[in-house]
Simulated assay, not measured.
Amino acid sequence: MSNSLLEKQNELYGNLNFAAAIKKDNVGIIKHFIASEKEAYENNFQGQFYPSYHYEISRVMSTKMSKIDDEDIYLAFYYQLKLGNIYKPLEKHYPLFLKALAHNIDDNDLDNTFLDADILYLLFGIKNNENSDSVYDILYNDYANFLQFTKLCNSYTTFPNLRKKHAKFAPFLNNKALVNRIKKGLHYYFKSSFLTAGSLVLLLLDTSDSAKEVLYNLHKTNLKNTDVWLLGSFYMDFKKTDANKKLLKDLYATYPKEWIDEYQKN
Rank of each mutant, 00 (worst) to 15 (best):
M1P: 03
E11Y: 06
E11F: 05
L12V: 13
F18R: 08
A20F: 07
A21Y: 11
I22N: 13
D25S: 10
D25E: 08
N26Q: 13
V27R: 15
H32G: 01
A35D: 14
E39I: 15
E42L: 15
Y50T: 05
S52A: 14
Y53C: 08
Y53A: 00
H54Y: 08
H54C: 07
H54K: 15
I57Q: 00
I57Y: 00
V60F: 12
M61L: 13
S62N: 14
K64D: 12
S66E: 15
I68E: 14
D69A: 11
D70N: 13
D70P: 04
D72P: 11
D72G: 14
Y74Q: 15
K82L: 10
K82E: 08
G84C: 08
P89E: 12
L90K: 11
Y94P: 06
F97D: 00
K99G: 13
A100Y: 06
A102L: 06
H103Q: 14
N104I: 04
D109Q: 11
L110W: 09
L110Q: 12
N112T: 11
F114L: 10
Y121T: 05
Y121H: 09
F124M: 08
K127A: 03
V135S: 06
A144S: 10
F149S: 03
T150I: 05
K151R: 10
K151S: 02
S155D: 03
Y156G: 04
F159T: 04
P160N: 02
N161D: 10
N161I: 09
R163T: 07
H166M: 01
H166I: 03
A167K: 10
K168E: 05
K168R: 09
F169M: 03
F169V: 01
A170L: 00
L173I: 02
N175L: 06
A177T: 13
A177Q: 12
V179Y: 00
N180R: 10
K184P: 03
K184L: 12
L186E: 02
Y188F: 10
Y189D: 01
K191V: 04
L195I: 02
A197W: 01
G198W: 00
S199L: 03
L202Y: 00
L204P: 00
D206H: 02
D206T: 07
D209Q: 11
D209F: 03
S210P: 01
S210R: 11
Y216F: 15
Y216L: 11
N222I: 08
D227R: 08
G232K: 02
F238N: 09
K240Y: 03
K240G: 12
N244W: 04
K246W: 01
L248P: 02
K249G: 07
Y252K: 14
P256Q: 08
D261C: 04
